[in-house]
């Protein structure tokens, strides 16, 4: 069919009528505005419930919680944009925290060197994922699920199953916690800079354009002569490296590497990305909006904590929010959309 100016790309002829609101708000604007609206509603609820929520101290806490999550989610967004998925980010962050913890505590290296350890480990871990996906041709879902488990297991060995404290002096905690800008902990500051750089990169570099193209149609990309495997490798390495740096800041913030340090980051990062409107099918969405998802997830977790909701209930609420977010942003008008 020619020139059907529907608000979403029509993949086939089999367009079916969806709910009425699907037709008058485009997917694009839904994906942008619903998280923002949800954000305001959430903030409103928490403010009404608890006066502590908006206190300067809690703002700083939220910033410090959101920073590592943003770092971890950024690279993973590229992976999802490319049509793959990285389920190893939690494991990578945890092992990275453990390794830099050991480097600091046992080897007594400088803070900069510890960060270098985290970065190098991130590159190696990403290279391992890339090897599984591009050379052994495993589906990224299973490859990173497995490698995440491997990283987690190594982390337990490295820590011997116990917490490793690195909080000998305040200077290490200051890496994440001190504030160039009042009320903004540096971990959030760095993460936002990384976010801005990567957002610009998605639209303004060959890397970003090709990554999106691979997500939109890998076979087309191959038949257009794109070096698909090279870009895949680069994206997996980017994802693991950022997750690893996220793990390092997590260590700095918490002061000790505990066996459970990476727990929850896998779900939270996928949730943040999806809530931000990046489609799991690839090719649609972007880094830009992932920051909204991170804000939403962070405020939700923190607000529920401040309001005294039990951590058991929090898990339920988080799951429900993910389902709602996907329901409102996904394009379900086409009957033939394949759901996997």
């Amino acid at each position: 069919m020619t020139t059907i100016a529907t608000d979403a790309p029509r993949a086939t002829d089999e367009t079916a009528a969806g709910g009425p609101w699907h037709s008058w708000i485009s997917r694009e604007s839904r994906a942008t505005w619903l998280p923002i609206i949800a954000l305001f509603i959430l903030v409103g609820c928490f403010v009404a419930k608890s006066s502590a929520f908006l206190s300067p101290m809690n703002m700083v806490v939220m910033g410090a919680q959101g920073g590592p999550l943003l770092l971890i989610s950024l690279g993973a967004t590229f992976v999802i944009l490319m049509g793959s998925i990285d389920l190893s980010v939690g494991g990578v962050a945890a092992l990275s925290a453990a390794l830099s913890g050991v480097a600091l505590h046992d080897a007594g290296v400088s803070h900069g060197l510890a960060l270098a350890v985290a970065v190098v480990f991130g590159i190696v871990a990403g290279g391992f994922n890339a090897f599984l996906v591009t050379v052994l041709r495993l589906p990224s879902f299973i490859a990173t699920l497995a490698s995440g488990s491997i990283f987690n297991g190594i982390m337990l060995h490295v820590l011997g199953g116990m917490a490793l404290s690195v909080a000998d002096d305040d200077s290490f905690a200051d890496i994440a916690g001190s504030q160039f800008i009042p009320l903004v902990p540096n971990v959030l500051f760095y993460a936002v800079i990384a976010w801005a750089v990567l957002t610009a990169a998605q639209y303004n570099t060959r890397f970003g354009r090709y990554t999106t193209a691979i997500g939109a149609g890998e076979r087309v990309a191959l038949l257009t002569g794109l070096p698909v495997n090279r870009y895949k490798a680069a994206v997996f390495i980017l994802s693991s490296t950022l997750a690893s740096v996220g793990g390092f800041f997590l260590l700095s913030r918490l002061g000790s590497a505990t066996p459970s340090i990476g727990d929850g980051y896998l779900l939270d990062s996928v949730a943040a990305i999806v809530v931000g409107g990046t489609a799991l099918t690839g090719g649609v969405g972007g880094i830009g909006r992932t920051i909204l998802g991170v804000a939403l997830i962070t405020i939700l977790s923190n607000g529920l904590n401040v309001c005294g909701v039990s951590s058991f209930t929090q898990e339920i609420v988080k799951g429900a929010v993910i389902i709602l977010a996907v329901l409102t942003t996904i394009d379900r008008r086409t009957l033939l959309t394949v759901v996997k």
């Binding site: 790309p9 354009r209 999106t212 193209a213 149609g217 076979r219 087309v220 090719g283």
Partner: peptide, 16 residues
Amino acid sequence: AESILLSQSVAANIAL
């Protein structure tokens, strides 16, 4: 399946 990225713009497809 092999030639065109349906969800991407005319410009992106030409530049691909």
